[in-house]
Computed example of a mutant assay.
Amino acid sequence: MSCNCNNLDKNGKNIVDLVRGKGKAEFLLKTPHEIQCSCNKTFLMTTCVDKCPHCGMVYGVTPCSSSNKENILAADINY
């Protein structure tokens, strides 16, 4: 995916918007990541856009940067 993800200013909403716009929100991650949510619960993130089942916080990562957990950013609750 030619995503220009370097131009997103580390903004979760921008990442989620870009991934959704490219039709890759449901793209499975090669390595699922355990996320410590802002609600202090953990969940397993398996797709490029995923939601905490406890509070609804949406997280996103581009497919090209999904191997590094540090690239996963929160967007907003039910975003």
Rank of each mutant, 00 (worst) to 15 (best):
M1N: 15
S2N: 09
C3D: 11
N4W: 08
N6Q: 11
N6G: 13
N6S: 08
L8Y: 00
D9L: 05
D9E: 15
K10G: 08
K13P: 09
K13M: 13
V16K: 01
V16Q: 05
D17P: 07
D17M: 04
L18H: 04
V19H: 05
R20Q: 15
R20T: 03
R20F: 01
G21K: 08
K22G: 07
G23D: 14
K24T: 10
A25G: 11
A25C: 04
F27Y: 10
L28S: 11
L28V: 00
K30L: 11
K30S: 15
T31Y: 09
T31V: 01
T31R: 03
H33P: 02
E34H: 05
E34K: 12
E34M: 09
E34R: 07
I35R: 11
Q36T: 06
C37H: 00
C37M: 01
C37W: 03
S38N: 01
C39T: 02
N40F: 13
N40H: 06
K41F: 11
F43I: 00
F43C: 04
L44A: 09
L44M: 14
M45F: 04
T47V: 14
C48A: 10
C48P: 00
V49Y: 06
V49H: 03
V49L: 08
K51A: 08
K51G: 04
C55R: 04
G56K: 12
G56E: 07
V58R: 01
Y59F: 05
Y59C: 04
Y59T: 00
G60P: 06
G60Y: 08
V61R: 06
T62I: 00
C64W: 00
C64K: 13
S65K: 06
S66T: 14
N68L: 10
K69I: 15
K69F: 03
N71C: 09
I72V: 04
L73F: 09
A75C: 07
D76S: 14
I77M: 15
N78R: 15
Y79M: 09
Y79N: 11
